[in-house]
Design a protein around this nucleic acid. Structure first.
Lengths: 230, 230, 230, 230
DNA sequence: CATGAATGAGCCTTCATTCAT
DNA sequence: CATGAATGAAGGCTCATTCAT
């Protein structure tokens, strides 16, 4: 699925030959954790699908929980490798272009299909019931992207914005991107004719950019007026 | 907590004295389902907190799942009673005002604290792992609100918009509203200094309206240009 | 086997009708814990022998360990009820008679056969690997007997003896009593022709008394000489 | 720790370089078996402490049980080498002196601290739960000492004593010696202020000799009176 | 009507041991 | 020769549910 070099993440890290079983378990676990969630997933199912013994999880990862942590971290890492945050837009481009690129990259991760969907589901479950693994994921994986978004928004809106406004702006962009993913169960029930269909990532990204760029500028103007008015 | 008349949902409604026990179980279950999630919540814990027998859940509701359904429906109903969708804006007001009212009402439901937070948590879990109860909730509770939002958006943006654009617009508004709730675990870890703090509902609503009204108009303009260009 | 009234010892104490199963488990557990030891005994075996479900232990006692504690305490209590420490010697009797009575009662407990042997085995295992239950057993069950022995020894040897000498005297009596029980595995292998035979309790008691009464008086004399000599 | 030549007990003795590993395992096993007991000790822990592979126990000793047997035999042998039974008293000395020497040697073994304590703990566990290794230990190690004690007692008490009386006499001496070791868990709980303290070996030995020598003579007198009376 | 008791399926984990390299 | 990987059998425990009273 993706490279494993140097990704032993705790435990005693069996070095070489066990590569097979260990990786098979990791792959099976990714599927099952994504589909069933941490609580409902059983190590028995995982090992069965991986053609491994029940005790193999314990041997290679020490624990169901440690296995889950490794699955989550690796899956996130693999996704980042595939979809750089920039969205292919050069660093010197205008803030508007960079924001559009960020949005497009994010939408493609989530709505582009492919094995990244496993990650999306796992993260959605983390939102409902955070696991100990989330701390690491946020600090190592999410924070860099968030800082990049903040940088873009600063460039777009100017430096004078209060922190709260910046947080709101960040939430505005991310909320629009994530909605159709996190609320899919509701959306599917509201539009049963589109059940199983995901929004087209690029069209969605365009729409979000079209809303956000003028919308956020309007937000900035509102804050400026508020400050003057004081 | 709220009315029970005629809400027995199928199972045989124990008539008189057990009213107490039944309601106590319902209240306890609301708390525990919201806090632990359906899977991790145990009927023992619920019954213990309700000062009821272990078998009481099965006796009164037939099933852990049926109990959950009833909890979810009732909690949702209670929330709707408290927070009408209109947000207090009269029907004859301008589309802009009505949208702002809708957003404000929604934000207050979610970020206003109080017992509605139970519902918010349960719905968040439903997104990660939909239960059979979700079908009913969406059809009976969510759909009317969605239709109201669609009506407002139609009034705001004009009737010519393609369905897809309307869906994106709807998602834009709702995504911005929901982000800080559904992604709270990440947000709390990104801004640990604000841990436990919710965004102020009215300030957030103002910001979202400030972004959405001009932003969505820009989105409409974009679609119009696209249609002309064809 | 013995009364249970008011002996619920923690946990939620199922009150009345479950008397059957609960007691069956207790009896089965006594046998198996005595025969196999706490570690090797399995709740599955216990429940099977008690014709009860595997979960019954958890339901009635909460835990394998709590079950063990209760078994140990009850068995000890039952033994004390059967064999009062005095050995039938009236309180006003001479110290020599009272010591002989104490020794005889103790020997009968241990070497008299009958269901008390379960306790003896369990206590022997506690010596090799004390369980959390031992604290209670010692404080509530053993200490009163020890104090009675100390009182007898004080009466026999006079009050002037240093504490250390008193402890040695106590150990002398008890060690002689317990030897053939605690070292049975070795004794049986040294005298295979007597395998399975226990020493006759009364003969052993007479011998111990015959050694101890003059022996301890000699010990006192030695301590007196030592103190004078200083 | 001590010699190994010719002590391989059946299993194929790995010849040269593995000597280190084998001995390291033996040492580690001694500690862990003494501390945890046979049942709770795990080969993983033993191998880890010995810096050896998990499979090393099976490779070098064939079995967890065979490893234990070897540990027990070697530890016992090492103890005997350090503490000859005579206690330093010449063979020609009086029976009283020889008995006192025997008692003193035994007490020093048990209460003298040092690595012999490992053996003491293992033997105590053997009493509670004899292992197959005990047969050999008794025949090869314990019996010679017992015979020496019997010889001393015969010399002290005269040859006319019935076997039963001799056994009681033997038990009297050994029981007094062993009590504070085998019942340490109870003694520690009865005298918590002395927790962790062992009786001084020489003082204890003096006290036991002071009790036993006159006491056993009194026992002989009693038996003589009984025989005359018949 | 409501309860305490009982059930059995199933979960994660641990352990001694064996296998293939 | 020695090792890391893999095995399968249990073991304790939890849980939703059902059954007699």
């Amino acid at each position: 699925m993706f490279e494993m070099k140097g990704c032993t993440h705790g435990h005693q890290s069996p070095p070489t030959t066990s590569y097979d079983t260990r990786q098979r378990i990791l792959d099976a676990a990714t599927e099952i954790f994504a589909k069933e969630g941490y609580g409902k997933a059983t190590v028995r199912d995982i090992c069965q699908r991986a053609n491994a013994n029940v005790a193999a999880v314990n041997y290679h990862f020490g624990d169901k929980e440690k296995l889950y942590s490794e699955v989550l971290m690796q899956t996130y890492q693999a996704m980042l490798n595939r979809h750089p945050t920039s969205g292919g837009v050069p660093e010197g481009a205008s803030p508007e272009e960079r924001l559009a690129g960020f949005i497009r990259a994010f939408c493609r991760r989530i709505y582009g299909g492919g094995p990244e969907s496993y990650l999306s589901w796992m993260m959605a479950r983390e939102m409902a019931e955070p696991s100990p693994a989330l701390d690491d994921v946020v600090q190592k994986m999410v924070r860099p992207q968030q800082q990049q978004l903040i940088a873009i928004l600063n460039a777009l809106l100017g430096p004078g914005l209060p922190e709260q406004a910046l947080r709101f702006a960040m939430g505005s962009v991310l909320g629009q991107i994530l909605f159709f993913h996190y609320c899919r169960p509701v959306v599917e029930r509201l539009f049963p004719e589109r059940k199983g269909l995901l929004p087209d990532p690029d069209q969605l990204a365009d729409a979000i950019a079209a809303v956000s760029i003028p919308g956020l500028k309007a937000l900035r103007a509102k804050y400026e007026r508020a400050q003057e008015g004081r």
